[in-house]
């Protein structure tokens, strides 16, 4: 599309098919044009018509007209295959930068069956699903993630070329389904806040040292050990159930601080992300300090997710 017209087109589309968690494809929302195969089909029909004209053969005329009529009738069928379909946002799972983002989209039929419905984000390949009569299908769509924050993948293309492939009916749907992308975790030294608890710079160094070599080795599993720390790789090698043993920081009040790190913002956030994951895995209580934001020390999945979200959205407008 022409760059100049793009904003106009987007605004027009936003009015016609507003963002919503549930979109029913109706006449106003479906576009339909002949596909490239349809163009080839028309050229073939033209040649057949030429044969009919030059040989004055009524049956050649007849077959040409029949196929042309099939083409026209296919407009209704192609449209019908898309119409009446409802797309619903099926939720997302947050991912880290670099992982494939996953969106779940639920397709519901309100009557007839829909065959070979393709959906996805262009220019990537579309995913094709069939929906049974009155049935529904949830499909998972993937898109690459390149930066943290809310990822809005743009309008979802839903298209159908069924039955003949000579026409393509499509719609651009915005399911208003942003995906939260966390920073990419980056291992490094433990960035502890200096000052609040009046620790000396030496103590800070010490803590860094400990952080660098926190993994102390494997020990045999004892009932009561956290299952999250099971070393499944070792188990699969036939070494029995073993638990990763980490140095404990229980004696320290851990306070992860953005300012305690050097480098650009993204690297700092990545480091913090790594430690949020690490400490959460060890069920260690920690606090998180970002410029303009402080999360008091706590532990657990909710705390972890809140911290990750804070990291993901740092610097973006509220």
């Amino acid at each position: 599309m022409n760059r100049r017209w793009r904003p106009h087109w987007d605004r027009w589309l936003a009015r016609r098919i507003p963002a919503s968690g549930s979109v029913r494809l109706t006449q106003r929302r479906i576009f339909i044009v002949p596909s490239r195969v349809g163009g080839a089909f028309m050229i073939a029909l033209g040649l057949m018509l030429l044969a009919g004209i030059n040989y004055q053969n009524s049956l050649a005329y007849g077959l040409t007209f029949l196929l042309a009529s099939v083409f026209v009738v296919a407009i209704l069928h192609t449209y019908r295959n898309l119409a009446g379909l409802t797309l619903k946002a099926g939720g997302t799972t947050p991912v880290f930068v670099g992982e494939a983002g996953r969106w779940r989209v639920r397709l519901e039929s309100s009557g007839r069956a829909h065959q070979a419905i393709a959906l996805g984000w262009l220019p990537a390949d579309l995913q094709s699903v069939d929906i049974a009569e009155q049935g529904s299908v949830t499909c998972e769509l993937n898109a690459p993630t390149t930066r943290r924050g809310w990822l809005r993948p743009g309008r979802l293309r839903v298209e159908s070329r069924f039955p003949l492939g000579v026409l393509v009916a499509w719609s651009w749907v915005d399911l208003d389904q942003p995906l939260l992308v966390y920073p990419r975790p980056l291992p490094g030294e433990l960035p502890l806040h200096a000052g609040a608890d009046q620790q000396s710079p030496e103590q800070g160094r010490l803590a860094h040292g400990q952080g660098a070599d926190d993994f102390q080795g494997l020990k045999a599993y004892q009932p009561g050990d956290s299952r999250r720390r099971l070393d499944w790789k070792a188990y699969s090698r036939g070494q029995g159930l073993q638990v990763k043993d980490f140095a404990s920081y229980s004696g320290l009040e851990l306070d992860l601080d953005f300012e305690a790190l050097d480098g650009d913002i993204e690297t700092r956030l990545s480091r913090l992300c790594h430690w949020v994951l690490m400490l959460s895995e060890r069920q260690q209580s920690f606090a998180l300090r970002l410029p303009g934001l402080y999360r008091a020390a706590a532990s657990g999945d909710a705390h972890r997710d809140a911290c990750l979200q804070a990291l993901a959205l740092y610097g973006s407008p509220p």
Binding site: G62, F65, L66, S69, V70
Partner: peptide, 12 residues
């Protein structure tokens, strides 16, 4: 599809 196309074909 063929059957549904017949009336249009006759017209043409």
């Amino acid at each position: 599809l063929v059957l549904q196309a017949v009336p249009l074909m006759v017209l043409l």
